[in-house]
C-alpha cells in the first residue's frame, strides 16, 4: 500500500526518525512482516494498529533491534536500531518488559538513569511517572497499573528522541490512562517522535497525528485518523423508502461501500456521504428518517481489515 518512491526513501534516510524499507521477517513458514515500507518523521505521534497477529509486535522488535530482519533495511535516525539504542535515542516500553525483582522502584529508576547517556534527574523521572509516592516500594509488590508506570519511567529515564510504547495503558484504570496520555502529549510537544501500539482505538483516534494499520505483516492504511475513517467508507447513511427498494439503483449511487436492505429500510456506508445523499435525491427517491453518522476509528478499522480479509480470502 502507498509504496514510497526511491527519492522519498532517500529523503527519509537523511531526515527521518524511522525508516522501514521492504522489511521482511518470517518465523518458520509464517511471514510476520511482509515487505513493510514506511517512514516516521521527527515530532510525529503515530499509532500502530492491527488485529492480533498482524505483525505489530514483530515490527516493534525489528524497530528496537531485538530481532534481525530477514531482508530489507531498518534505520533509526540514520543508524542501525542497536546503535540508536546505545546512543540513548530510543526509549521503549515493552508489553512483555519484565522488571528486576527484590529492588525498590527508586533503585530501578536509578539504574535506568545510570544506563542512559543523557539521563534526567531520578526524582524528576519518578514524579513524572507518578511514582514519587511509591518510590520506596519493592518492584515485585506493585499492582499492574503501577508496574506499567515503572515501565514508563524506564522508557523516559533520559532525553530520548523516539519513544516506543507497546500497549502502554494495558492494566491501567481510566484516570491513570488519562494521566498517562497527558504525560505523553508533553513528550510529543517537546518534539519527540512517539510510536505506540494499542488495542484501544479511541486512544489512537484522540492522540495520534497519524495511524498505521497493519494487516498480515503489510501496511493496509497510513494516514490521519480522519483519512482512515474516510478510506473505510466511514459514514453510515440510513433511511426508509416509500416505494419498493431497487437494489441496483442504490448500488449505482456514488461513494457507496457496503449496502444492507431490510424491508424498506436501507443502511449503507459511504466515504462521501454528501455525494451519496445528493445522488439519492437526484434519482427521484424520497428517503424518510434520513440519518448520516460518522464511524468511529474502531468501526473503520474493523471495516478495513474485514474488507482486506474478504479480498484475500
Amino acid at each position: 500500500m502507498d509504496h514510497m518512491t526511491t527519492s522519498a526513501i532517500t529523503a527519509a534516510r537523511r531526515t527521518g526518525a524511522v525508516l522501514f524499507d521492504s522489511v521482511t521477517k518470517s518465523y518458520g513458514t509464517v511471514r510476520a512482516v511482509d515487505g513493510l515500507t514506511f517512514a516516521l518523521h521527527p515530532g510525529e505521534t503515530v499509532a500502530l494498529l492491527g488485529p492480533n497477529g498482524a505483525g505489530k509486535s514483530t515490527t516493534l522488535d525489528l524497530l528496537l533491534g531485538l530481532r534481525p530482519a530477514d531482508s530489507g533495511t531498518v534505520e533509526v535516525f540514520g543508524t542501525t536500531p542497536r546503535e540508536a539504542v546505545v546512543a540513548g535515542r530510543i526509549g521503549a516500553m515493552l508489553q512483555s518488559g519484565g522488571l528486576m525483582e527484590d529492588v525498590t522502584v527508586r533503585e530501578l529508576v536509578e539504574l535506568a538513569c545510570a544506563l542512559h547517556p543523557r539521563p534526567y534527574p531520578v526524582d524528576q523521572v519518578l514524579t513524572r511517572a507518578g511514582l514519587a509516592q511509591i518510590a520506596g516500594r519493592k518492584v515485585n509488590k506493585l499492582s499492574g497499573g503501577q508496574e506499567q508506570r515503572v515501565r514508563f519511567a524506564l522508557a523516559t529515564a533520559g532525553d530520548s528522541d523516539l519513544i516506543v510504547l507497546d500497549e502502554p495503558t494495558t492494566g491501567m484504570d481510566v484516570t491513570s490512562r488519562q494521566d498517562f496520555w497527558a504525560t505523553m502529549r508533553e513528550q510529543a510537544a517537546a518534539g519527540r517522535t512517539v510510536l505506540f501500539a494499542t488495542h484501544y482505538l479511541e486512544e489512537a483516534d484522540a492522540i495520534a497525528d497519524r495511524v498505521l494499520v497493519l494487516h498480515r505483516g503489510r501496511l493496509l492504511a497510513d494516514g490521519t485518523a480522519a483519512e482512515i475513517k474516510a478510506k473505510a467508507g466511514a459514514r453510515k447513511v440510513s433511511f426508509d423508502l416509500d416505494t419498493a427498494v431497487d437494489e441496483a439503483a442504490l448500488r449505482a449511487l456514488p461513494a457507496v461501500g457496503s449496502l444492507e436492505i431490510s424491508g424498506r429500510t436501507v443502511r449503507l456506508r459511504s466515504h462521501d456521504a454528501d455525494a451519496t445523499v445528493h445522488a439519492l435525491y437526484a434519482t427521484g427517491l424520497y428517503p424518510h428518517n434520513l440519518e448520516v453518522a460518522g464511524l468511529g476509528l474502531e468501526q473503520a478499522f474493523v471495516a478495513l481489515t474485514q474488507a482486506e480479509e474478504a479480498r484475500t480470502a
Binding site: 528496537l64 533491534g65 531485538l66 539504542v85 546505545v86 546512543a87 540513548g88 530510543i90 526509549g91 521503549a92 515493552l94 512483555s96 518488559g97 519484565g98 522488571l99 528486576m100 535506568a112 544506563l115 542512559h116 547517556p117 515501565r151 524506564l154
Partner: peptide, 15 residues
C-alpha cells in the same frame, strides 16, 4: 529473568 522479559528490557538500554 529471561522468561519475565527483564533481559529484553535491558537490551533496550546502552548496557
Amino acid at each position: 529473568e529471561r522468561e519475565s522479559g527483564w533481559v529484553r528490557q535491558l537490551r533496550l538500554t546502552a548496557l
